[in-house]
Design a protein around this nucleic acid. Structure first.
Lengths: 247, 247
DNA sequence: CGATTGTTTGAGGAATATCAATATGTGTGG
DNA sequence: CCACACATATTGATATTCCTCAAACAATCG
């Protein structure tokens, strides 16, 4: 067995611990296939806040999964400005967007200290040719990852600032639920400036909207931790300012 | 030879006429592979304005290429509102976003009478397993198609209304250049309401900005046809209101 | 603790949505 | 070909949202 491969016992533990469950790659594969895949995944490695996991333009050598902590991805757009693409929490996969041409399209940065799983791409790529179901699953994940982000960014584009914040909070909360975590509290690991960049508004406006949400007792904020007190109300706010397209 | 396959002579003509050239699938494949692929493509079929080529949720049975005319794609988002995802002109591929899970994620509608090429998915899928380069090329196209749209929508999110319109015009013009067409004029086949939906602003604002661009003699509008008189100026406007992220 | 970085709050102004009215274009049947 | 109805686009006046600038406040880190 090559040195990069680990024993199946270690691996089973690694991936079950990884809470990725149905969101991660194994979904839809046979038992044997999953085991072969799991042997590719390195144990979660620590990453320090501010560290870049990969940089836009880097050759894609691996796919990553957030084990603990939080990450952001960002792109430098045509005008040379940074645009934050998304925020990633435990269970989320990173680097899928670069699988097409094997180059990372964005930069991934740690928002706080955490741990990251690494799935070497060349080994995965070989396995893809051997296991028919894996290619499907990868493409499924790829298109889902992209369309989820896209969907969020799209709807944000037509909302008021209140709607944007509420939508983001609802989205983060829903993603927690999908991982069998409690809907609340949500941890906003990113700085206000990151939020502002992502949501396309100013940090001052972020502050004001969050204050308004607190005054209405829809959320409660303690440092980075946001407790959702009234989920239905938050959802109602998330529709706010979503212009109905005329005709 | 199955009835659905056509003779290579017909096919060569079909794809060379199709102006997809380097943008279409054949790019990067060997001559033999290209010929095998071309046998899958049906001749361009007419489509009437307003017709839906495929609908969100439909099983993916084919990939499409715009031969003539123009198309839009749209999604119904979580709040039940229509969100226009993009506009497609001759040479553009449609349906790539659904390749992951073989379900169309958006609805494609003809903006004017035109012609569409159809590439049956099941046959393409078989070919993918046989021709190694094709899978790469498809994933490349897939991720590019997605990231191009995403990029545009993203940058739009942080721009003023003037910046948004200018950016869209520049983008449409650049896409014409990529197909060896003249940069100008650009045909805005879609209604103002579609533009407004896509750009996240109101139709009245669209009107006003277009008027301002005309008054500055940067563009000239005749019906749906927009002539770009001063490309550098338009590019300058496209950066307008692109907030510099603080910090 | 200072120094630095990040966040909140306030006052004023610019951009853009909204509402209402008019104009232009497009298709249909006489 | 014209006249009408209907859809689409433009224009104007007003209201609102959100950004800008400026300052105070809180947190973090050496």
């Amino acid at each position: 067995m090559p040195a990069t491969f680990r024993h199946l016992d270690d691996v089973q533990q690694a991936c079950s611990h990884c809470s990725l469950a149905h969101l991660c790659l194994p979904y839809g594969l046979g038992i044997g296939d999953v085991k072969r895949l799991e042997t590719l995944v390195d144990a979660a490695k620590p990453i320090a806040r501010g560290t870049e996991l990969f940089v836009q333009g880097d050759k894609l050598t691996a796919i990553y999964a957030v084990d603990s902590g939080a990450m952001k991805t960002s792109m430098i757009d045509a005008e040379g400005l940074e645009q934050i693409m998304g925020f990633y929490y435990p269970g989320d996969l990173l680097g899928l967007d670069g699988m097409g041409d094997e180059v990372h399209h964005c930069t991934a940065t740690a928002l706080e200290d955490g741990h990251i799983c690494r799935i070497p791409f060349d080994q995965l790529d070989h396995l893809v040719d051997e296991v028919p179901g894996l290619r499907r699953q990868l493409m499924r994940l790829m298109s889902h990852a992209l369309s989820d982000d896209e969907q969020l960014l799209l709807t944000l584009g037509r909302k008021s600032s209140e709607g944007r914040i509420a939508t983001l909070l609802v989205s983060l909360s829903r993603r927690r639920l999908m991982r069998n975590l409690s809907a609340s509290p949500v941890r906003l690991s990113m700085k206000r400036a990151d939020l502002a960049n992502f949501l396309g508004m100013r940090i001052e406006t972020i502050s004001r909207v969050l204050r308004r949400l607190q005054e209405c007792e829809i959320i409660a904020i303690d440092r980075a931790v946001v407790s959702i007190l009234d989920f239905p109300a938050l959802e109602a706010w998330s529709a706010r300012g979503a212009w109905v397209a005329d005709q």
